[in-house]
Each structure stands twice: as structure tokens, then as C-alpha cells.
């Protein structure tokens, strides 16, 4: 029931945003929005709401604090990839990292962050939540030890993912 209400409210807010045209909404628009939001919320309630972790405001504050750093890393990533596109200097490989995260939400945040930041692309994940990362410029010092170090690959992202997702 709570899942249904949360998804319906989310859909209704999205409807209001999409139909806003500088003036107030008409009554007909709002009624149509409520009907549509109820239908969509009922259909999507099991996809949108798996558990109630995201209801904790602490996670949202950490997420907002994470965004500026994430965008900075992303801008850096783009110059790095631009350099490799123009020069063709690549040394690719797939490495396994064990960030030690416990929840699916945390590993999702981490995998998406890894894909959008310097020279790394998450390929697969196994049952123990180890990530397999395609790295475009493999460094030699990481290859020496078998439990690979996280730091050269994804800097401090596992810590942020832990704060947001656990």
C-alpha cells in the first residue's frame, strides 16, 4: 500500500512537471493526472519500491554531497577519453575488484559511477558483489597483487557508495 502511494505520488509530480506551461494547471489536467498516476503507480509499485532504504533523508544528503565530486570526476573522465580517442594510446584489460559492499543499492551506485568516470566500464558482477571492470589504461602496479586494489581504479567511490547505500 505504501509502495503504491509512493509510486503514484512520484508519477503525479512527474506529470505536473511535464504538463506545466508557465500558467497554473487547469482542473481537467489535474484530474487526468491523478487518474494516470494511480494507474501507473499501481503498475510500477513493485519495480519502484523494493525496500524503504531511500526513505531515509541521510542517504539523500550524502547523495547530494556526492554529486559535485562525481561531476568533477566525470569532466576529468571526458578529457581522458578525448585524449585516448585522439592519440589511440590504449592498454585495455578486465580487472576484478572487491569493494566489499553489502547491498544491491550500493553496488548499483558504485557500478554506475565507475562507468561514468575515468577510463573504466563495469562489465559484470557476481554473487559476492565483486565487480569486473574493463579498464582502458591498465597500470602495472595493480597487476602484481591478486586482490586488486580499489584505489587506482575507482578512487574513493566505494566509501561514498557505502554511505549512500548501506
Amino acid at each position: 500500500m505504501i509502495a503504491f502511494i509512493a509510486s503514484a505520488v512520484f508519477c503525479f509530480v512527474l506529470w505536473l512537471l511535464l504538463t506545466f506551461n508557465g500558467r497554473m494547471w487547469g482542473t481537467d489536467e489535474i484530474i487526468a493526472g491523478i487518474v494516470m498516476a494511480a494507474i501507473a503507480g499501481f503498475a510500477a509499485r513493485k519495480i519502484f519500491v523494493k525496500d524503504f532504504k531511500l526513505a531515509n533523508p541521510k542517504r539523500w544528503i550524502f547523495f547530494l554531497a556526492y554529486l559535485p565530486r562525481f561531476f568533477f570526476e566525470m569532466a576529468k573522465a571526458n578529457f581522458d577519453v578525448a585524449y585516448r580517442v585522439l592519440t589511440g594510446r590504449i592498454r585495455p584489460g578486465i580487472v576484478k575488484i572487491s569493494p566489499g559492499l553489502k547491498t544491491d543499492l550500493a553496488i548499483t551506485v558504485l557500478a554506475n559511477s565507475i562507468t561514468l568516470t575515468p577510463g573504466t566500464l563495469s562489465v559484470d558482477v557476481d554473487e559476492e558483489r565483486n565487480l569486473y571492470v574493463h579498464w582502458i589504461n591498465v597500470k602495472d602496479e595493480v597487476l602484481e597483487k591478486m586482490p586488486r586494489e580499489c584505489r587506482p581504479i575507482c578512487s574513493t567511490f566505494p566509501d561514498w557508495a557505502r554511505r549512500i547505500g548501506e
Binding site: 584489460g93 561514468l116 559484470d124
Partner: peptide, 27 residues
């Protein structure tokens, strides 16, 4: 965008595409 890229990469590796010029392949 990252989710789609992740899906494509995983599907490629499962269907046997080797990374070209790879120096290491833990998977």
C-alpha cells in the same frame, strides 16, 4: 546511459567477445 552500457558489455562478454589487445582478463 551507464546501465545500457553495462548491459551491452555483459552481453558481449557472455557471448564470447574477447577484449582486443587485453593485458589481463580476470573475468
Amino acid at each position: 546511459n551507464p546501465t545500457g552500457a553495462h548491459a551491452i558489455a555483459r552481453a558481449a562478454h557472455r557471448s564470447g567477445v574477447k577484449p582486443a589487445k587485453a593485458v589481463v582478463d580476470d573475468l
